[in-house]
Design a protein around this nucleic acid. Structure first.
Length: 448
RNA sequence: GCGGUCGUAGCUCAGCUGGUAGAGCCCUCGGUUGUGGUCCGAGUUGUCGUGGGUUCGAGUCCCAUCGAUCGCCCCA
């Protein structure tokens, strides 16, 4: 019979147990840090009612959505009425609108779950991946100070993850939009297109971006295009950038409001005590998603620029507008954890974690099985993760097993130890063996 | 959705201008009595992606097809 070749679908990440332990620990670090900053956990279903999920997006995202339909429904020719979520922000909007009366505002939630996008899998681009989101949702209003809190959380998370140097870039979309208004680029669709191209300034040369801005679909006059880049291409400290923006003296309300907000975020961020080595105002950051209305963020790993942003987000004035008449402004960020983990793996930064099994109670003499079971029970009662070797096997094989599985300690008790009222504890890493009194065994592991 | 590369053992790959398939790793067993990670020895593993064509003969050449991968678009 022909075997079916075992394989994962493209664009999915699957790990061996010890790598999974490393993955899980990093995820725990993110979770702990989010909680430390006062965020509450939320989970939502992997699939949502299709029209709830798709109401907003339209266009590009819609093509990437996986629909869900039962086989019965397919047989009856029904169109799928469920779809897998492609991010956590849209489900959050639905969640907040649905539970508005029961939630305390400002509502601070974190959410760590997988999302799905049906796009071509590429290096570091997955069709199923983890997002680790935090958002703060206000009722009617939400002070800009919350915009400054986001980078503070990101800084804390990435420092705790110990992933090497990183920079949080941020900007305010109102600055860009006001600038475009002042330059006569009025159509919203065209502004979004310009934003997308401007966003590429980090990757492409000035000339290439100029060409794109003059190209099809946008058709910016060359002098306007270079004016845009002159204003946006400024590089300098946060204070210098703000001075640069003031110096432009643009007569546009949106622009002025954007600069004022940016200044407020910078000031608050300094007060939050986030070192300026880890963030910068970057006027070319725009973000593709069009629901962002103010502050936007992107975070890059210094040593992996090719990877793109590993954490991004922004401010949205009225996210849940499609679901409720209440005005619910918010600000949030999202860590693309699967991609981040992939990058760290590639860079050799990720080490396999230890097994979650701390101790293997080996079996040297089947007649002592009752003792092995008793030892296992004692260790477990003492909070030590313990596996008992239940199948008779040669010592060689048992140690090889412990070694391969990454189990740190092996407990050995043969007739000799039994007679002395002792057990032998072997440290598989150092190779050292310790004679431990039978009664003191659980205590021996207390500090390990 | 559009472009460039590549498909040989579970994995990484070798196989020169066509002559009946190889290495390393992994895995299994062994190197005697209760000891792994090193070393030594032995062993298992393949419709050479699939279908067709050229040829006395194709892993090797040609065509098609499927799959993978990288880049573009978009994005974490």
């Amino acid at each position: 019979m022909a075997l079916i070749s075992p394989r994962t679908p493209p664009g999915t990440m699957e790990l061996l147990p010890r790598r999974q332990v490393a993955f899980q620990r990093m995820l725990d670090t993110i979770r702990r840090t989010y909680e430390r900053f006062g965020f509450l956990p939320v989970e939502t279903p992997v699939f949502e009612v299709a029209d709830v999920l798709l109401s907003k997006s339209g266009g590009e995202t819609e093509k990437q959505v996986y629909f869900v339909q039962s086989t019965g429904g397919i047989e009856q020719g029904h169109k799928p009425d469920l779809a897998l979520r492609f991010d956590l922000t849209v489900p959050l909007a639905r969640y907040v609108a649905e539970h508005e009366r029961d939630l305390a505002f400002p509502f601070r939630r974190y959410q760590i779950q997988r999302v799905y996008r049906g796009e071509r899998a590429q290096k570091g681009r997955y069709r199923e991946f983890y997002q680790c989101d935090i958002d703060v949702i206000g009722k009617d209003s939400l002070p800009v100070a919350y915009d400054a809190e986001m980078p503070a959380v990101i800084h804390s998370v990435f420092t705790a993850l110990d992933v090497g140097p990183f920079t949080i870039n941020f900007n305010n979309r109102k600055i860009l939009l006001g600038l475009f208004e002042a330059l006569g680029i009025s159509e919203p669709e065209r502004r979004v297109l310009v934003l997308r191209q401007v966003d590429k300034l980090d990757k492409l040369s000035r000339e290439q971006v100029l060409e794109l801005l003059a190209g099809e679909g946008i058709g910016l006059a060359p002098d306007v295009a270079s004016q845009v880049l002159d204003m946006i291409g400024f590089a300098g400290s946060a204070d210098a950038t703000l001075a640069h923006l003031d110096g432009l003296a643009l007569d546009n309300d949106t622009f002025r409001q954007g600069v004022a907000e940016l200044r407020e975020v910078v000031t608050a961020l300094q007060a939050f005590g986030v070192p300026e080595t880890h963030w910068r105002v970057n006027l070319s950051i725009a973000r593709g998603l069009d629901y962002y209305t103010g502050t936007v963020y992107e975070t890059f790993l210094t040593n992996h620029p090719g990877l793109g942003s590993v954490c991004s987000g922004g401010r949205y004035e009225n996210l849940a507008g499609l679901y409720t008449k209440s005005k619910l402004p918010g600000v949030g960020i999202s860590i693309g954890f699967t991609r981040l983990f992939y990058a760290l793996e590639q860079a050799g930064i990720v080490q396999d974690g230890p097994s979650t099994v701390q101790v293997l109670v080996t079996q040297f003499d089947p007649s002592l099985m009752a003792d092995y079971l008793a030892i296992g029970a004692e260790l477990r009662a003492a909070g030590v993760n313990t596996e008992i070797q239940l199948e008779p096997a040669k010592p060689k094989k048992q140690f090889a097993y412990a070694d391969k599985a990454g189990i740190r300690y092996a407990v050995i008790m043969g007739p000799d130890e039994k007679a002395r009222g002792e057990v032998t504890v072997k440290d598989m890493v150092s190779g050292e063996q310790h004679a431990v009194a039978r009664a003191a065994l659980a205590g021996w592991f207390a500090g390990k």
